[in-house]
Design a protein around this nucleic acid. Structure first.
Lengths: 228, 228
DNA sequence: TTGTGATCATACTACCGAGTATGTTGTCAA
DNA sequence: TTGACAACATACTCGGTAGTATGATCACAA
């Protein structure tokens, strides 16, 4: 009954220091989430056993199951973390009062940077989508996944918002806003499928990817062409 | 030694009739491939057991293992079939002597139609990419997967070819041809992630998707904008 | 008619991994 | 100092599934 899985730990209030920040959140779960993200990214959901995650932590199953009721819930938490990263990046930008075209540009750049920066989490998000397309066995898990997908749709909605605003002002052009947002995000997400971290400071290489794919995304919905 | 797994069956020369055509190829494997494609699409690779595939065939494991040495090889064959469908559709178009812009348009439309028409196979192709990103355990399987990825790259190369040709003529604009082809295909593949077959004649709905996403793809690399 | 091989079905093994049950240690509070 | 509980580690169960071994039919060929 008195189970850490349900108690929202207080992290000993006042001990904000020592937070390596690499994986924030409530200490305890944080390290597990980070390790799981790496494992899921490298081997995929099914091929990753709880023992694998534990090994990476230098621990055993006991530690993981102390915080998570099941493997699926651990996965969900990693997914949520990934979406949280994305949402916390984009939402402030949407609130700015930039012109639609510039606002979308900033959003696109930020999104691609997130893809490259937090690769493991983003790959987990992709796996979550695949998992949803497939039938995650139990109905209970389907509901959970459905909730996560709502988060994703909400994220997509932020882009749709700016797109529609831009269309009204004549800077964008498309017939179906939902399709447009999907197309834009499809481009921006693409690097997740092939990007790999390099040694040294490949900052310039990353920025090239950011600029290039942002350019494609903006072009795809730009007004002035003769399509749609 | 005398194993059906290695002998290229002759299909009893002269018996070309009775080919339901729904799943061509050498009779025997054909039905298995089709059933496997459906299963993989509905439940994903790991969640699909050989027994699941056999059940759908109204048969047992014995039949599947008679033609395939392992579950992985069955998957590879489904993947190959999917890529074969795509290649056989696009290659003739590339050989035509259309102007780059029109040629690309035709290619895009054909590609999206394939996505919608052969959904199960295309989803398997996507899973193959994910599988390659993850680490398919044994080195032997990694090699096999690497070969399949070469096929995919070759397919992408067909698009790259037309894109470069168009850039030389000034109708397309981009700095990195590889990135451009990835962006275009990212858009065109997107419907696979959410499209579902409907009842009745949804031909018009499908064609709307085809036209819309083709439009986005063409726009993304169109010359005339101020990006890149 | 016999035997040979293709085409399956049946029955079995072997293992891996999710989940559980329980033990151990440290810490804090009263 | 002594419970009480958090935070793990250890040891086990148990179901599902890939792969195998073997048996049963059937067609066709000699």
């Amino acid at each position: 009954m008195s189970d850490a899985r349900s108690t929202s730990r207080s992290t000993r209030s006042g001990d904000m220091a020592g937070q390596m920040a690499q994986a924030a959140g409530d200490s305890g779960r944080g390290a597990i989430i980070a390790a799981a993200a790496d494992c899921f990214m490298e081997a995929g959901y099914d091929a990753t056993s709880i023992d694998t995650v534990a090994d990476r932590l230098g621990a055993t199953k006991g530690r993981v199951y102390h915080y998570y009721r099941s493997k699926a819930e651990l996965f969900y938490d990693v997914y949520r973390r990934g979406m949280a990263i994305n949402l916390s990046t984009i939402e402030p930008i949407v609130k700015n009062d930039l012109a639609p075209r510039e606002k979308l540009a900033v959003m696109c750049r930020a999104h691609v940077r997130n893809m490259l920066e937090h690769l493991s989490y983003q790959r987990v998000v992709m796996q979550g989508v695949e998992m949803h397309l497939a039938g995650s066995t139990t109905p209970a898990q389907r509901e959970k996944l459905a909730l996560l997908m709502k988060e994703r749709e909400r994220y997509e909605g932020l882009f749709r918002l700016v797109l529609v605003e831009g269309r009204d002002q004549g800077v964008f052009h498309f017939s179906n806003a939902s399709f447009a947002s999907k197309a834009v995000l499809a481009i921006l997400n693409n690097p997740v499928l092939w990007y790999r971290r390099r040694r040294g400071d490949e900052k310039t290489a990353r920025e090239e990817i950011v600029e290039t794919f942002t350019g494609f995304a903006l072009n795809s919905v730009a007004a002035g062409a003769n399509s749609n």
